[in-house]
Simulated assay, not measured.
Amino acid sequence: MTSTVLPGFLDAHVHLALIDPSLLVRGGIARVLDLGGWPASPAPSAAQEADAQLPDIAFAHQFLTAPGGYPARQDWTPPGSVAEIANASDAAAAVDAQWAAGASVVKIALNAETGPVPGDDVLAATVARAHELGLPVVAHAEGRGQAERAFAAGVDAFAHTPFSEWLPDGMIAAMALSMTWISTLDIHGWGDPTEEFAVASDNLRRFHQAGGRVLYGTDLGNGPLPVGLNRREIEALLAAGLSPENVLSALTGPGPGGSPAPESSPNPNRPVASTHPARITFIPGARPSDPPAFVDWLCTARAVSRLELEDLQ
């Protein structure tokens, strides 16, 4: 029987503390980037990840935010998963703490719709210290002007496609030169598209057209999302102008900042999950050319080890 083998599929925005992560592998996800809440200590060893059938995991550990800012006061926030930063010194110390905990990226919350956000000096200090350590910075930008602030400060990636406002073409073209956007389109309505879904989809369409790098991500743990490949997210990417080949690239590419996530990391403190046999993606059958059939085919993907692959072929 014909089958297709691809690099391990990545969901670049998950919250493992809010779901059962053992379900991800059977749902076709081989790699994840946890963007806030995953406990850094004790970090899962390679053997534990393999035994538990977890995906390969890279993480941001704590959310960095202003005092009282999002998500410090949300009832879903895991205890100890927020670092509140009031000044540049706090910011540098918080970044150092994420590094010491083994983080592969730094996550900063710029959600002006829900509470205070770090000032420009604090944002700049966060980015500067993270980059000194070789860590990319991922921003949750929500509220008018927050995406522009993040970009001006040198943030490497958006945790969500910007959805609070329609961004001008010139700004999107500039962002496309250096930034990665993680898609997360389906959280805007979970199949019942909202106005934010329309704004995000149009911003993503123009970002992609400008040559920007898009990663598949779902914000798993936020609302009624499937634990595994999300058909609605894939369909939204195709509707935003990505080709099937582009969607595969969004699923199989390296993480934010261009460094592979999570097979390797600039942080020697982080246990590297690929010491166990790296998981890859197995899809029964050949890739169809018709887009609807492509989605059906893609959603049959399984994350398997190379040893498991030998038994399937």
Rank of each mutant, 00 (worst) to 15 (best):
D120M: 06
S305R: 12
A286D: 13
I280F: 03
L204E: 01
A147W: 09
A46L: 05
A200M: 01
L167V: 06
L225P: 02
A239E: 07
W166L: 14
V14R: 01
E142C: 13
L215M: 12
A240T: 05
M175D: 08
A128V: 08
M175R: 04
L10V: 11
S164P: 08
E233H: 10
V227P: 00
V304T: 07
D56A: 15
G212Y: 03
P21Q: 06
S178F: 04
P292V: 08
D219L: 02
G119P: 00
F207H: 05
I29S: 03
T65M: 01
G221I: 05
G189P: 06
F9E: 12
W38D: 00
H208Y: 05
F163W: 14
L204A: 04
A30Q: 07
V214Y: 06
L16R: 02
A30K: 09
Q209W: 00
F163V: 05
P116W: 09
H13K: 09
N222E: 01
E49I: 13
C299Q: 10
Q209R: 13
W76R: 00
R232S: 15
D290L: 13
G145W: 15
S274P: 00
L123F: 10
R279N: 09
A250T: 06
E132H: 08
A86Q: 00
I108Q: 05
L204P: 01
S104E: 13
N111C: 11
L215W: 11
L54Q: 08
Q48F: 15
R287A: 14
L35I: 09
S45R: 07
G221P: 02
Q74M: 15
T114N: 13
E165Y: 10
D219I: 02
L64I: 12
V214P: 06
G134R: 10
S104D: 13
A293P: 05
D120S: 14
P44M: 08
P260A: 10
H61V: 11
L167Y: 04
L225Q: 11
S183K: 06
T4F: 02
P292Q: 15
A12P: 02
V227Q: 13
N230F: 02
R231D: 03
S81C: 09
V227D: 10
L6K: 03
T114C: 09
P244E: 10
L24S: 03
F197E: 09
D186R: 12
G191N: 07
I29D: 03
S41F: 14
A174L: 12
P168W: 00
A100P: 02
E165I: 03
L123W: 07
Q98Y: 08
C299R: 00
S259K: 07
S89P: 00
G28N: 13
I234T: 15
A139R: 03
A157H: 13
A173M: 09
S183L: 07
D75L: 06
L135G: 02
A261H: 13
G28P: 08
P292Y: 13
C299A: 01
L18H: 01
E84K: 04
L23R: 15
R302M: 11
A240I: 05
P292M: 11
S89K: 06
T300E: 15
P39V: 01
V14F: 02
V127D: 05
N230I: 02
M179Y: 09
P116V: 08
Q74P: 00
P162H: 11
V214M: 11
F197C: 03
V5Y: 04
